[in-house]
Design a protein around this nucleic acid. Structure first.
Lengths: 207, 207
DNA sequence: TCCTCTAGACCGACCGGTTAGTATAGTGCC
DNA sequence: GGCACTATACTAACCGGTCGGTCTAGAGGA
């Protein structure tokens, strides 16, 4: 029973459609605001089909988190690990990758932030997984920040742990605000304003 | 069953307890993740009492938004409107007020961000109200930013609309990250790192 | 070639529990 | 007497999840 060729298209198709529609609905209505019926209706399937692919709604949630981790986070780590040229080049790479990924996978990224706000701190079983993924993200950022300090490019007086948290906070907040106002914003210009603030701040130098 | 020492009226007490517990639960589990039964149980009242004070769950949600608008936003506007000393002093005031308010009213602020992520973009009836409040916040920030530009303190090359959105994004994101990690973070130090980045950026000057 | 069997993918009625919300009768307090 | 509830009992819709059954493609044998 080979799956790779034309034979097993149906199942793969349905599975990816479930995930795609779930992500879209999660980003619009949150986890508890999205019902299985919403998802199956959007994917054009029935409840039976959904539960053939997923044991429970929580397994779908886990799959979604996996998706974010492998596609965004691992992708980001892979995109920067071989980069030569020091901190500045790496920072540029991180910003570019994050912006491009967020732009082309808005619903996945918005869902991640929305669901983390919704599910962390409420005693939900998924909380541990959320935190481990955030931790992985943070460790990645801390390593880069410390490289920047060693090169004397990143200000040494800024605490690395705080700075990594601030980076993640910026990305989360920016994504949410951009997503809410994306009809009235030029994303490219918005990002370059952000980059300017991040590197050199909002205040004029000789004041 | 006595509720308090003689003086206070029963109704006031119950009403404020409903709101307080609702905010706490919203911040932990989101809007759809919090049931009326959760709220009444936490407040130690019955369903009848809840529906005596609120016509529906959505009216409670409106009341919550009003709470955020009058207590945080109007408070912020009031705290800065009479301030003399120009942009720098005003910015300090805004940052201090926001930080202090967020610290002492964490659940109210976290709920606002969480619920906006959960409810904006999903076609919910409350969306308009959310957007009007965000719009009011943004207009306030734009005015201050433009003052800073006029004084030649805020960099003129940064777009005011983008910058205001970025400010709100920073506040939202920072609040969420701090809330998630508040057990392992020194809030004061975290904030001073943020302020340093905001004003002068992350990169060393002479590079 | 025809027949049987198997497995994967899916359908949709149905289940028990939960949800927001309603109804109603009664109670203590100002 | 009316305000601010309590206690209990409900309803109808909706929730996540189950289950028996169906359809199809392919394999194996005669």
């Amino acid at each position: 029973m080979q799956q790779s060729e034309a034979s097993n298209i149906q199942g793969e198709n349905t599975l990816s459609r479930i995930i795609k529609e779930a992500i879209r609905l999660f980003s619009a209505k949150g986890y508890h605001g999205t019902s299985i019926d919403d998802i199956t209706q959007a994917a054009g399937i029935t409840k039976g089909a959904f539960y053939w692919h997923f044991k429970s709604k929580e397994v779908l949630l886990r799959k979604f988190l996996e998706e974010w981790e492998t596609r965004f986070l691992d992708g980001l780590i892979r995109a920067t690990e071989g980069v030569k040229g020091g901190f500045l080049v790496k920072l540029q790479k991180v910003n570019r990758y994050t912006a491009a990924f967020g732009f082309y996978n808005r619903e996945l990224c918005v869902s991640f932030t929305t669901l983390s706000a919704e599910l962390i701190g409420g005693g939900h079983a998924i909380e541990k997984y959320f935190r481990s993924v955030y931790g992985k993200y943070q460790n990645f950022l801390i390593k880069i920040i410390n490289e920047g300090k060693r090169e004397n490019v990143f200000k040494k007086e800024l605490d690395s742990i705080h700075a990594s948290l601030i980076f993640m906070a910026f990305h989360d907040g920016l994504l949410l605000q951009w997503s809410m106002n994306r009809d009235n914003i030029d994303g490219e210009a918005f990002l370059s304003t952000y980059r300017a603030i991040l590197t050199d701040g909002i205040l004029v130098r000789d004041r």
